[in-house]
Nucleic acid binder design. Sequence first.
DNA 1: CATAAATGCTTCGTAAAGCGAAAAAATGAC
DNA 2: GTCATTTTTTCGCTTTACGAAGCATTTATG
Lengths: 161, 161
Amino acid sequence: MKRSDVSLIALRRILRATELYGRDLARAAGLTPVQIRVLQIVAETGQSTPKAISARMGVSQPTMTTLIDRLVAKGLVERRRSEADRRQMNIFVTEAGREAIARAPDPLHDRYVAAFEALPDWEQAMLVAALERVAGLLDAGHLDVAPVLDLGDIRKAPPAN
Amino acid sequence: MKRSDVSLIALRRILRATELYGRDLARAAGLTPVQIRVLQIVAETGQSTPKAISARMGVSQPTMTTLIDRLVAKGLVERRRSEADRRQMNIFVTEAGREAIARAPDPLHDRYVAAFEALPDWEQAMLVAALERVAGLLDAGHLDVAPVLDLGDIRKAPPAN
DNA sequence: CATAAATGCTTCGTAAAGCGAAAAAATGAC
DNA sequence: GTCATTTTTTCGCTTTACGAAGCATTTATG
């Protein structure tokens, strides 16, 4: 078997493990995986806009509206019209939202970090190098599909987010 | 920043790239990402059962029934009652199903494999070892996948930088 | 043999997630 | 002032997902 195939199988195991585990965790927290992700993205900077979040998650704006609707209904985020540009909505995490995030830890975080930090130093270094390499390979492939950040954009304006 | 955090960020880049790219590809092929996955699982061995597929995908049986319904409606798979145990349904890929798979390449496969195989030999070995290691860390809590780690290979890999 | 229990799948009802088309509201350019 | 653009929402639809209940079949138990 080719080594590229072996690496693909390992990659799929990673994808599968995170997906299944994420579903379990979300269920335990009373949220869906998607809701947790939206919440985390907003919480990173404390506020965001529907447009920015949808771009970040690779989802359409109408979809983001409904996702935010649900989080608002649960009292985890709130909408406030932007003062600067009144077309925009600013999304803020509420106190309840912060608590929800704290209760619903990152799907990857707990299990993985504990195991990772138990590894010997040289192995940690190897894993970091390898993961960044693979992420680079995959990101590069994705750029072909959506070459958003080309020179034109760089010339025009500093990237948001 | 801790190395576990750096590795988590890389992992998230990997997850994000595969998710976004998978959605694009599925759309281009006229199938949804989930439908492609079901089809691929069935095609691996040419046949399977709803129970087995649902277990493999981490999804309930009712969900699998509706997924198979859609694939049957599209003529990509067919149901046949098992002779050995008439409670079971066997799912077979049709010729049209095989063609659909051929037209809708694996979200990861094409670009990644090309990039991977262009890497020098030692780096391929390092990536395989690292990915299997990470997959092992993540699946550790999950029952089904055999966490067979070839420690020999890992120790042979040169420590990154 | 008979019947109770377990297994495998489907149906039903409900909810979440996703999209495109188009409406609404504000901005910016002319 | 008017028109094009941007940002978000509304509407209608499909897909994905689950639990509960139901049906047919097989296996276990008396």
